[in-house]
């Protein structure tokens, strides 16, 4: 059931393949850089008060049935 109540933009749907590819390369190289930097002890603590993109799950018993 895929109703759209706003136009997602066709170009925007198509472009995501390219965006994802670029993002993949970027994340990969960042990862490598991070490993190199932490090997030399160059990783700095971040100041931002907003945490990471991942959610810590406290209550997963009901959710796990789904996957």
């Amino acid at each position: 059931m895929n109703f759209l109540y706003f136009d997602p933009g066709l170009g925007a749907m198509i472009v995501q393949a390219v965006v994802a590819a670029a993002a993949g390369i970027l994340l990969f190289s960042k990862n490598v850089m991070y490993k190199v930097k932490s090997f030399f002890g160059l990783v700095k603590e971040e100041e931002d008060t907003y945490d990471s993109i991942d959610i810590e799950e406290e209550d997963t018993n009901t959710d796990d049935k789904k996957n």
């Binding site: 995501q16 393949a17 965006v19 994802a20 590819a21 670029a22 993002a23 993949g24 970027l26 994340l27 993109i53």
Partner: peptide, 9 residues
């Protein structure tokens, strides 16, 4: 791929 977009943004 979609996760990559989200993470890079």
């Amino acid at each position: 791929s979609q996760e990559n977009i989200l993470e890079s943004l």
